[in-house]
Design a protein around this nucleic acid. Structure first.
Length: 963
DNA sequence: CGGGAATACTG
DNA sequence: CCAGTATTCCC
C-alpha cells in the first residue's frame, strides 16, 4: 500500500500512488518566485514571471527551494525535483514555427518509440511523429509507453478565476464515486529508471495547448499546468493527478494565455534557446488563428513522460497520450441536457397537442425533442420529433412544441412512449427519458365504451334504462367502470353497500325530518326552494334562463314523484328518467339535475336530498352513476369540488362510482384532495369498504390522491389516505416516477416521511430502493434536494452496507430526531389527545402508530397543520357541564330583533357559515355536536366571534380556557 | 458546490 | 437600443 503526499493537505494519504508534484512554473532558486509563479496566469505579475521564465537556464535539479513542506518525508524529492523546466516535443513536428526539430526526432529514435493504441486518443488525430515513428513491428514489450488507466470525468464545471475561492471539487476520474473517488491516472510501462510524468491542458481538435488553466490547489494558491509527478522503480509508475481544477480563461485573455503556453512549450522544446523574432512572429500568427475558434467549453488532458539526463536536459520517453474530452458542465453547448418538467404527460394520438417542456439551459439552434417507443428488448420501434421553431425556445429554459402524431392513430388504449432532448451537435441525450402517454381518439374510445356498456347492461338484471342511456347524445358521456374485468364484481359490491348506506341515511332522523314529513307539502317546498334559487343565484353556471329550466324540470319530476308515491309504476320512472336526460342536454355544461342541485352556491339540502331520494325511489342509480357532464364530472366530483361532504355518502348510495375519472383523469377523491376538502376526503374514507375505493388511480398528471396530498404537504390528508389503504404508498407517480417517499423528501417534511415509513413498516425495502424516473432512490434524492435533517432521517432508515435489510425502528429514530431539534414548542396535551381520536390503522405493529401521533406537536413550524383553537374548542366541549351551560345559553331566543323566536344558536350558526346545517338541527346541541365531531370543516374563528357578539356570556365561559 | 443574478457582448 | 445570449461574479 502506497502513501501519497497530498499537496493540499500537507500530509500523507494512504492508497494513493507515491509521487510528488511541483509546479512547472517554479523557477528554482528565487524564494519569491515560488509564490509569484503560483498566481493565476493572467495576472500581471505572472505574465512578467513567465516571460522571465522563458529565459531561464535549465535548473540544475538540486537547487534547494523554500517549499513549506518541512514535515514531509518526501521533502527531499520535492526539493530535488523543484523547478522542473518546460520540455515537450508533442507539438514539435506539427509546428510550423519549429526549425530545429531534428534534435527531438533523434531523441525519439533513441528510445524506440512504440505507438500503442493508448487508452483514449480521440479519433482523427494524426500527429507527425506518431506516424513517422519507427516503432512499427518493434519490440513492444521493451518500449516505454504511457497508458491512461483512468480517464477524467466527461463533464466538469470550468470555473472562472473569480470563482476560485474556496474549494470547488476536483477533476475526478470517470469511474469516480462518492467513495472511492478516482482521479485521472496514467501508468508508464517498460521503463525502470526515474521519470517525470506531466499533465497539461490541451485543445480537443488541435495538438496544441488550451488557453484554460489546469490548476492544482497548493498552499492556498492555484498552481497552473503543466503538472509533473515523479515516478520511479521504488514508487511504481502510476501517476495519479489529484485535486485539479480547470480555470475558464476569460475571453479577453484567451490570446495571451494561449500565446504564453505555446511559447513556453516551444522554448523548452528548443532546449531553452531564445526565440528568434521571426519565430515569435509566426507563433503570434498561429496563436491568433487558434484563439479565434478554440472551443472554450471542451478540453482534454495531455500526458507526457520524460527522463532527466544528468546534464539536466529532459528527454521524452514516450509519446504523449490524450484523455477523452472534458466538457464544461456550465455551457449550453456541452452541459447536461435535462427535461425538468412537462406541462402534461399525455396527449392525443393525432399529435399537435401543445406541450411545454421546462429544460436546463439549451441552445435553440441545437436542440430537438425526440419521442420514441421501445419494445421489450429495448429496440426502437417508433420515433418522431416534436415540432417547434427557434422562437419557441424560451430563453434557453423552456420549449413550447407540438407533439408528433403517434404511428398508429387507431390504438384503443393508452400507449406509453418516451421523450428526450437531443442535441444534434454531439448527439447528446437528456437522461432519463420521460414517459408520455398517447391517448386514443374519442371515436375509438366511445366505440369501445359502447361495447363495455352494453355488455355491462345486459348482465345487470332487467334494467330497463340501459338502452335508453345508450342513446344519450355524445356529450353526455356514459361512465364506464374503471376496470372492465372487475366491473361486475364492483357493481355487486356497490349495490350491497350502496343500499346499506342509503337506507341508513333515509332512515335517519334528519333525513326523515327533512323529506319524509314534508312530502305532503311537496309543491310548497318546491315553490319555496325555487324562489330561493332565483334569489341566490347558481353555484356553477349560466344565467336565469338555466335556473328557470332547472326549476321547471325539478317541479315536473317532483310532481311525478308525488303522484306516484303509492303506485311506483314504470311509466313514471321512464318519464322521470327522460326529464333528467333532456335537462342535461339543454344545458351547456351537460350538468344533470343532480349535478346542479348539489352545487348551488347556496347549499340547498332539502332540494338535493329530495332529488337523491327521487332518483333512488325510481331506481335511477344507473343514471346517477353514468351521467357525466361535459367535463366528465359525476355528481360526486361536483360534490367534492363544491365542498359538499354531506352528499358523498348518499350519492355513493345511489351507486355513483367513487372511482369514476373525469376528463382530467381525476376521481372525486382526487378533487377532494386537490381542493383540500378534508371533510370530503373523510366522507370517502371513513368506514368505506376498501374494495370500493381505488386509491391507486392516477389522474392525467400521473398522480394518485396520496401523491397530491404529499405534494400539497397535507399531513392530515396523507395520513387519512394512508390509514385507509397503505398499498398506495409504493405506487410511483407517472410524472417523475417518484413514490410517496420520494415526494415527501421533496417536500422536506419529516412528518410525512415518518408517516410513510411508519405505515410501510412491513416492506420498507421496496420504497427505500425504488428509483424514480431520474434514477434516484429517496435517499439519493434527499442528498440532492433536501435539507440535512431529511437526509439524516433517511440515512438512519436505510440498511447499512452489508446488511440485507433493516426494519424501521421508529422509536429510535424518533428519539434521535426529537433530541436533535428542540425548536418545537410543546405540543400540549390537548392536541395529542385530539390526535388519538384519529382513525388507527388496523396494524398489528401498532406500536409504531403513536409515533406519528406524537409527532403532531412538532408542527409548530408547519404551515399546513390545523390551527390551534380548533382542537381546544372541540376538547372543551367534551366537558359535560360546560357543554350544557353553552347549550342552554344558546337555546335562548334572541331577545330582540325582527324574529323573537329565533334561537341564539341559529344566529350563531349563521354567522359561523354553518347556515346550511340549521335545518338539520333542532337545538343548540346540533350545532355543538357538529363542532365537536366535524371540527375540521368549521371556521372556529368565526364561531367564536359570533359567540362573542351574540352570547357574550357563553363566550366568557370559553374565553378563559381558550387562552 | 450548484444555482442564479448581474453584467457584458453582439447582431 | 433591443433581444438574446454569453460571461462573470456572487452566495
Amino acid at each position: 500500500m502506497n502513501q501519497y503526499y497530498d499537496l493540499d493537505k500537507g500530509k500523507n494519504v494512504l492508497f494513493m500512488n507515491d509521487a510528488s508534484s511541483t509546479s512547472g512554473y517554479s523557477s528554482g532558486n528565487s524564494p519569491t518566485s515560488t509564490t509569484q509563479s503560483l498566481s493565476p496566469a493572467h495576472s500581471p505579475e505572472t505574465m512578467a514571471l513567465q516571460t522571465d521564465f522563458a529565459n531561464l537556464n535549465l535548473p540544475t535539479g538540486n537547487s534547494p527551494q523554500p517549499l513549506p513542506l518541512q514535515n514531509s518525508p518526501y521533502q527531499h524529492q520535492l526539493l530535488n525535483n523543484g523547478g522542473l523546466g518546460q520540455l515537450d516535443a508533442s507539438n514539435l513536428i506539427n509546428s510550423a514555427a519549429v526549425a530545429n526539430a531534428t534534435s527531438f526526432g533523434n531523441m525519439y529514435m533513441d528510445h524506440q518509440y512504440y505507438v500503442s493504441a493508448p487508452a483514449a486518443v480521440p479519433p482523427g488525430q494524426h500527429f507527425g511523429y506518431h506516424q513517422n515513428s519507427p516503432a512499427a513491428g518493434g519490440d513492444n514489450k521493451h518500449v516505454p509507453q504511457l497508458r491512461i488507466v483512468e480517464q477524467p470525468v466527461e463533464k466538469f464545471r470550468f470555473r472562472y478565476k473569480s470563482e476560485m475561492h474556496g474549494t470547488h471539487g476536483s477533476l475526478n476520474g470517470a469511474n469516480s464515486k462518492r467513495t472511492p473517488k478516482t482521479f485521472p491516472e496514467v501508468t508508464l510501462y517498460n521503463y525502470d529508471g526515474p521519470a517525470v510524468i506531466r499533465c497539461s491542458l490541451f485543445q480537443t481538435n488541435l495538438d496544441s495547448p488550451h488557453s484554460h488553466q489546469l490548476v492544482v490547489r497548493k498552499d492556498e494558491r492555484d498552481v497552473c499546468d503543466p503538472h509533473d509527478l515523479h515516478v520511479s522503480k521504488d514508487r511504481g509508475y502510476v501517476a495519479q493527478f489529484i485535486n485539479m481544477g480547470i480555470i475558464h480563461t476569460a475571453k479577453k485573455y484567451i490570446f495571451e494565455e494561449l500565446f504564453k503556453k505555446k511559447q513556453d512549450r516551444l522554448v523548452f522544446q528548443m532546449n531553452r534557446r531564445e526565440l528568434s523574432t521571426k519565430q515569435v512572429q509566426e507563433l503570434h500568427q498561429e496563436t491568433e488563428r487558434e484563439a479565434k475558434d478554440m472551443n472554450l467549453n471542451q478540453v482534454r488532458l495531455c500526458f507526457e513522460a520524460f527522463k532527466i539526463e544528468d546534464n539536466g536536459t529532459w528527454v521524452q520517453l514516450a509519446p504523449p497520450v490524450y484523455s477523452n474530452a472534458i466538457n464544461n458542465r456550465k455551457s449550453a453547448q456541452t452541459g447536461d441536457l435535462r427535461i425538468v418538467r412537462l406541462s402534461k404527460p399525455t396527449g392525443g394520438v393525432m399529435g399537435n397537442d401543445e406541450l411545454i417542456l421546462l429544460v436546463e439551459k439549451v441552445s435553440k439552434k441545437n436542440i430537438k425533442v425526440r419521442f420514441f417507443e421501445e419494445d421489450e428488448d429495448g429496440e426502437i420501434v417508433w420515433e418522431s420529433y416534436a415540432k417547434f421553431r427557434e422562437s419557441d425556445v424560451h430563453h434557453q429554459y423552456a420549449i413550447v412544441c407540438q407533439t408528433p402524431a403517434y404511428k398508429d392513430k387507431d390504438v384503443d388504449r393508452e400507449v406509453v412512449v418516451s421523450i428526450e432532448l437531443l442535441r444534434p451537435s454531439d448527439d447528446e441525450r437528456s437522461f432519463p427519458p420521460l414517459p408520455f402517454r398517447y391517448k386514443p381518439r374519442d371515436a375509438i374510445v366511445s366505440r369501445k365504451r359502447r361495447r363495455t356498456c352494453s355488455s355491462a347492461n345486459s348482465s345487470s338484471s332487467g334494467n330497463v334504462s340501459s338502452n335508453n342511456s345508450l342513446d344519450l347524445p355524445k356529450t353526455l358521456v356514459l361512465a364506464q367502470p374503471p376496470n372492465g374485468a372487475t366491473s361486475h364484481h364492483d357493481q355487486t359490491i356497490s349495490q350491497e353497500f350502496g343500499r346499506y348506506h342509503l337506507d341508513d341515511l333515509l332512515n335517519s332522523d334528519h333525513f326523515r325530518k327533512i323529506i319524509e314529513h314534508n312530502s305532503a307539502e311537496l309543491e310548497k317546498i318546491c315553490d319555496l326552494d325555487m324562489g330561493e334559487l332565483q334569489a341566490d343565484g347558481h353555484g356553477r353556471s349560466e344565467g336565469p334562463s338555466s335556473r328557470n329550466l332547472t326549476i321547471k324540470y325539478l317541479s315536473a319530476i317532483f310532481k311525478i314523484f308525488d303522484q306516484d308515491r303509492r303506485t311506483r309504476c314504470e311509466t313514471s320512472r321512464r318519464q322521470v328518467e327522460e326529464l333528467f336526460t333532456n335537462h342535461a342536454l339543454q344545458n351547456d355544461n351537460n350538468d344533470t339535475l343532480l349535478h346542479e342541485v348539489i352545487s348551488y352556491k347556496k347549499d340547498n339540502l332539502k332540494l338535493a336530498f329530495k332529488t337523491i331520494q327521487v332518483m333512488n325511489y325510481f331506481k335511477l342509480s344507473e343514471l346517477a352513476n353514468s351521467a357525466l357532464n361535459a367535463d366528465g364530472d359525476s355528481a360526486l366530483h361536483v360534490a367534492c369540488q363544491q365542498d359538499r361532504p354531506h352528499y358523498i355518502r348518499p350519492l355513493m348510495g345511489l351507486e355513483c362510482s367513487p372511482n369514476q375519472q373525469n376528463h382530467a383523469g381525476n376521481t372525486p377523491l382526487h378533487l377532494a384532495v386537490k381542493e383540500e376538502r378534508m371533510n370530503c376526503v373523510e366522507s370517502f374514507l371513513n368506514g368505506m369498504p376498501t374494495l370500493r375505493l381505488d386509491l391507486s388511480l392516477k389522474n392525467d398528471d400521473g398522480l394518485t390522491p396520496l401523491h397530491m396530498a404529499i405534494r400539497q404537504n397535507r399531513y392530515d390528508v396523507a395520513k387519512k389516505l394512508i390509514s385507509h389503504d397503505r398499498s398506495s404508498i409504493s405506487v410511483a407517480n407517472t410524472m417523475d416516477g417518484n413514490n410517496a417517499l420520494h415526494m415527501a423528501v421533496l417536500e422536506q417534511s419529516v412528518e410525512l416521511l415518518v408517516l410513510i415509513l411508519d405505515a410501510q413498516n412491513q416492506n420498507l425495502t421496496d420504497i427505500l430502493h425504488a428509483r424514480n424516473a431520474a434514477g434516484y432512490t429517496p435517499l439519493e434524492l434527499a442528498r440532492h434536494k433536501a435539507n440535512e435533517r431529511v437526509v439524516q432521517l433517511l440515512e438512519k432508515v436505510y440498511p447499512e452496507k452489508g446488511e440485507l435489510a433493516m426494519t424501521w425502528i421508529p422509536r429510535k429514530v424518533k428519539e434521535e430526531i426529537d433530541s436533535s431539534s428542540d425548536e418545537s414548542s410543546d405540543a400540549g396535551q390537548l392536541e395529542i389527545k385530539s390526535e388519538e381520536m384519529d382513525i388507527k390503522m388496523e396494524d398489528e405493529d401498532s406500536v409504531e402508530l403513536d409515533l406519528s401521533s406524537g409527532r403532531r406537536g412538532r408542527d409548530s413550524d408547519g404551515t399546513q397543520m390545523n390551527p390551534e383553537p380548533r382542537h381546544k374548542l372541540q376538547l372543551l366541549l367534551k366537558n359535560k357541564s360546560l357543554y350544557d351551560q353553552l347549550s342552554s345559553l344558546l337555546n335562548e331566543p334572541v331577545g330582540h330583533g325582527p324574529d323573537p323566536k329565533l334561537a341564539k344558536w341559529k344566529r350563531v350558526a349563521r354567522q359561523s357559515n354553518l347556515e346550511q346545517f340549521i335545518c338539520l338541527w333542532l337545538t343548540a346541541d346540533g350545532l355543538l355536536d357538529h363542532i365537536m365531531e366535524d371540527g375540521a370543516s368549521v371556521d372556529i374563528g368565526a364561531f367564536i366571534r359570533a359567540l362573542q357578539t351574540i352570547e357574550p356570556q357563553a363566550y366568557a365561559l370559553l374565553d378563559r380556557d381558550l387562552h
